[in-house]
Design a protein around this nucleic acid. Structure first.
Lengths: 213, 213
DNA sequence: AAGTGTGAAAAGTTTCACAGCG
DNA sequence: CGCTGTGAAACTTTTCACACTT
């Protein structure tokens, strides 16, 4: 799932807990849409697919926000989680490798929704990618260094072919990228202050294969 | 990441280990391409991004395949893992919801590579999806029951809008689907003999947000 | 009465370290 | 000698259960 690194700060908090924070965040937003002011750990946990006690423990890592006998204030909790996830303001993101999967992801608007903004894509052959009529501009990789630096981009989505993944990742790191969402099917080697989150769609399907009889 | 279930059989094997099996499988295939006959736990572990002892432990759950002093026979190990993952023969898969993300995934050919065959897609408005010029046929949802039954499909990729996800999942289960790769942003409730594997792309990005400073 | 916050127990997972085999 | 296979130790994460607050 993840090949990541120890952070000097923020230790002691299980990685899985951080992951679940994103789930809670999403569920809370749905709750907010229904004008709920507060929510109990039992209710939120059910929506998130975890146990109430796990939810309380997870929130406990970040402080105390609940009112005993009442529950958690929805608005307040959303803000707190946003802050914990480092999402106070819009995060710029670049995508590298606008091939089959890359351009598919560019078409998918799901990233844009939640506080992230895929502001540009880069490819070794930008003309080909541009022919696909994407909304997001596709530049030549040679422009990448300057762009990332000038826009202070910290996050990148990596969709280049396996053979180039490590090489491109090295560049990204050199340009200042701190988090890589890696769709290529290789374990990247990066410095310990860079986080890699691997998503391997074929593998997810493979994994399911084990459970069907 | 996962909301899955206890299986009556195959217990005692950590879920994470099963997940890693897919990683090993991929690394072994790369090794095979370089005509390696055998591989040591140290070498394979490095490629897979795990510790040698974890690799040995993981393989140990499924039996003994190594030769002490030598390593593991590559071919043999590939076959064993394929069997463990239930991938001896081509698995048919259907995709439901050919909207933004769904059609993106249909275009992406990555699933086809490793023993899975996305044989059909279904959508509430198939005409719209067909306009996107996809290679895989898009049928009306009304055809789904018959198709899944007749082709003995066990796996489904679910990309319908959140509001319909649970409803569609219920249908899939009723039709005989045993594993769902869920791209919708909701925790599905399914019987305990059905496995759900959640992939939430926006969440993966959100998760990274925590680690950048 | 309802529901959080949290020590302490339980369960699950990884690493260590080394005996044993080819 | 080199490398697997595996008990036992170490560590991590989850669950339990209940004191405590509103």
């Amino acid at each position: 799932m993840d090949a990541d690194t120890d952070k000097p700060d923020k230790v002691d908090i299980p990685k899985k807990a951080i992951y679940r924070l994103s789930i809670y965040h999403r569920c809370l937003q749905k709750l907010k849409a229904t004008d709920q002011e507060t929510v109990s750990s039992t209710t939120l946990a059910k929506a998130a697919g975890v146990t109430p006690s796990q939810l309380r423990r997870d929130l406990g890592y970040f402080g105390q926000f609940g009112t005993r006998g009442l529950g958690y204030p929805v608005d307040n909790l959303i803000t707190t989680i946003r802050e914990a996830l480092g999402r106070e303001q819009l995060q710029p993101v670049v995508l590298v490798g606008a091939g089959n999967l890359g351009s598919a992801l560019l078409r998918y608007q799901g990233f844009q929704k939640g506080g992230f903004d895929v502001i540009a894509a880069f490819d070794a052959r930008p003309e080909e990618a541009r022919a696909k009529e994407l909304e997001i501009p596709v530049h030549d990789v040679s422009m990448m260094a300057k762009f990332i630096f000038e826009n202070e981009v910290k996050l990148a989505i990596l969709c280049v072919p396996v053979g180039f993944a490590q090489e491109v990742a090295n560049c990204l790191v050199a340009y200042g990228i701190q988090g890589i969402l890696n769709f290529s099917t290789i374990m990247l080697e990066v410095p310990s202050d860079v986080t890699v989150n691997n998503v391997d769609l074929a593998m997810e399907l493979e994994h399911l294969g084990y459970f069907i009889r």
